[in-house]
Simulated scan of single mutants.
Amino acid sequence: MRRDRIGGRDRVAYQRLRCASDSFQLAALLIEQTRVLLDIPAGDDTALTALALLITSGAAELIVVWLDGGLPVERPVLIRIVADHVVEMVGRLPGMTSS
């Protein structure tokens, strides 16, 4: 179905599906780069996959909320919040990969 013919709820569903696809592609890139950087063997990446999806989808949702005015912080503060949390989560990966 062409995008310009989608209306109402179908348009929202289409946009969510497209965003999910984009998030998964970004997560796949994050997974591969992190696997190489932290020397995590293929097949031992369940925690990494979950974390990559959490980071990409969660960050996207957070930014949408911020853009809509739901999080009243300045841009540098938002960047620091996201960066600090991502670094903390990635720092826990080596202990989680064998789970």
Results as ranks from 00 to 15, higher is better:
Arg80Phe: 13
Leu53Ala: 13
Asp4Thr: 04
Arg35Ser: 06
Ile81Thr: 08
Pro94Gln: 00
Val65Gln: 07
Ala59Thr: 15
Arg16Pro: 02
Gly91Asp: 02
Pro72Gly: 06
Asp68Ser: 15
Leu93Pro: 00
Gly69Thr: 02
Ile55His: 00
Pro76Lys: 00
Arg11Glu: 15
Gln33Cys: 12
Gly70Val: 00
Asp45Ala: 01
Asp39Arg: 09
Asp10Arg: 15
Leu71Asn: 06
Leu67Asn: 09
Leu29Met: 01
Ala28His: 07
Arg3His: 15
Thr46Asp: 15
Ile6His: 11
Ser98Ala: 07
Met89Pro: 00
Arg11Gly: 10
Gly8Asn: 11
Leu17Phe: 09
Leu71Ile: 05
Tyr14Asp: 15
Thr34Tyr: 02
Ile40Glu: 03
Val64Met: 11
Val36Trp: 03
Gly8Arg: 09
Asp4Gln: 07
Glu61Pro: 15
Gln15Cys: 06
Leu51Met: 04
Asp4Ser: 13
Ile63Leu: 13
Val36Arg: 10
Ser23Gly: 11
Ala83Asp: 13
Leu17Met: 09
Tyr14Ile: 02
Leu62Gln: 04
Ser98Tyr: 06
Asp10Lys: 10
Asp10Gln: 13
Ile63Lys: 13
Gly7Cys: 07
Val87Ile: 11
Arg3Ala: 15
Ala27Phe: 00
Val82Ala: 12
Gln15Leu: 04
Arg3Glu: 15
Cys19Lys: 08
Ala50Tyr: 12
Val86Met: 04
Leu67Ala: 09
Gly69Gln: 08
Arg2Asn: 10
Ser99Cys: 03
Ala20His: 11
Gly58Phe: 01
Val12Cys: 03
Gly58Pro: 03
Ile40Phe: 01
Gln15Val: 06
Thr34Asn: 02
Pro94Ser: 01
Met1Asp: 15
Val90Phe: 05
Asp44Lys: 11
Glu32Cys: 10
Met1Ser: 15
Tyr14Val: 14
Ala27Pro: 01
Arg9Ile: 04
Ser23His: 06
Arg2Leu: 08
Ser21Pro: 11
Leu38Asp: 01
Leu67Cys: 14
Ala52His: 00
Trp66Phe: 14
Pro76Tyr: 01
Ala52Pro: 00
Gly69Ile: 02
Val86Leu: 09
Ile79Ser: 15
Asp10Trp: 04
Ala47Phe: 04
Glu61Arg: 10
Gln33Val: 07
Phe24Asp: 08
Val36Lys: 04
Leu51Ser: 12
Leu51Val: 08
Asp39Lys: 14
Thr49Phe: 10
Leu71Ala: 14
Phe24Ser: 10
Leu51Gly: 06
Gly91Ile: 00
Pro94Glu: 03
Leu26Glu: 12
Ala47Cys: 06
Trp66His: 13
Gly91His: 01
Arg75Lys: 09
Ile79Asn: 13
Leu53Tyr: 07
Ile81Asn: 09
Ala28Val: 05
Met1Trp: 03
Val64Ser: 13
Ala27Val: 02
Ala52Arg: 00
Arg80Tyr: 06
Ile55Asp: 02
Leu53Asn: 08
Pro76Val: 02
Pro76His: 00
Gly8Lys: 04
Ile63Arg: 11
Arg9Gly: 14
Pro41Tyr: 02
Ile79Pro: 10
Ala47Tyr: 02
Asp10Glu: 13
Pro76Ala: 05
Thr56Ala: 10
Val12Met: 04
Phe24His: 10
Val12Pro: 01
Leu62Val: 07
Leu26Phe: 03
Arg2Thr: 12
Pro72Cys: 13
Glu88His: 05
Tyr14Glu: 03
Leu67Phe: 10
Met96Glu: 07
Met89Leu: 12
Asp44Glu: 14
Asp68Gln: 14
Val12Ser: 06
Leu37Trp: 09
Phe24Gln: 06
